[in-house]
């Protein structure tokens, strides 16, 4: 066990965007059994602390690899590319225009005759866009086109933000 290992190696999966989610859960469950701090109750403080660290590393790793966006960001981070904290990066204006339109569409949903139908249509559009971007990323990353892969992740970030806005509005409509 080594918490300096990256999450893929730590959990025992190949470093790739394509991931077998069932295997991820299985491996995680196995590791949880061996790493659970209760098993170390009889050991020294130092060993117990280490067990807690392993557990935290495992939980963070599982959360990171499960999420398609975070997994992509993590793969880029392993290559030394930080997509978490960049603020102002030139983005394709056509893409931004489309993002603007989608957000305007979302804003007008509340006034629509059937807001739920509008929301469903938006959700479907966002979902298919995300699927396409994930496929793009997988292909670009596997073929080491890291610049393109980075720009795909930036697009994912905008769409994920929109997806969470849609969810928020859905909750508000339900109330």
């Amino acid at each position: 066990m080594d918490i300096k290992k990256n999450y893929f190696e730590f959990i025992g999966l190949p470093v790739s965007y394509h991931i077998d989610l069932n295997r991820l859960s299985e491996q995680a469950r196995e590791l949880q059994k061996t790493l659970h701090p209760d098993r170390y109750a009889h050991l020294s403080d130092q060993e117990q602390r280490r067990a807690v660290q392993y557990m935290a590393h495992l939980n963070e790793g599982v959360a990171t690899l499960k999420s398609p966006l975070r997994r992509a960001q993590y793969l880029l981070a392993l290559q030394g590319i930080d997509t978490h904290n960049e603020s102002s990066t030139p983005i394709d204006p056509m893409f931004l225009m489309q993002q603007m339109e989608l957000r305007e569409q979302l804003e007008s949903v509340v006034d629509a005759a059937d807001p739920y139908a509008e929301l469903d249509a938006l959700t479907a559009a966002v979902e298919s866009e995300l699927q396409a971007l994930r496929a793009d990323f997988a292909q670009q990353f596997e073929t080491e086109q890291l610049d393109q892969a980075t720009s795909t992740v930036r697009k994912m970030q905008f769409i994920e933000k929109l997806a969470s806005e849609i969810e928020r509005l859905e909750d508000r409509l339900d109330d």
């Binding site: 102002s88 931004l96 603007m100 697009k155 970030q157 905008f158 929109l162």
Partner: peptide, 13 residues
């Protein structure tokens, strides 16, 4: 002018 901040998903026109 259309700009965006990918980290927070903000879009500005």
């Amino acid at each position: 002018g259309m700009v965006g901040a990918p980290a927070c998903g903000d879009v500005m026109r």
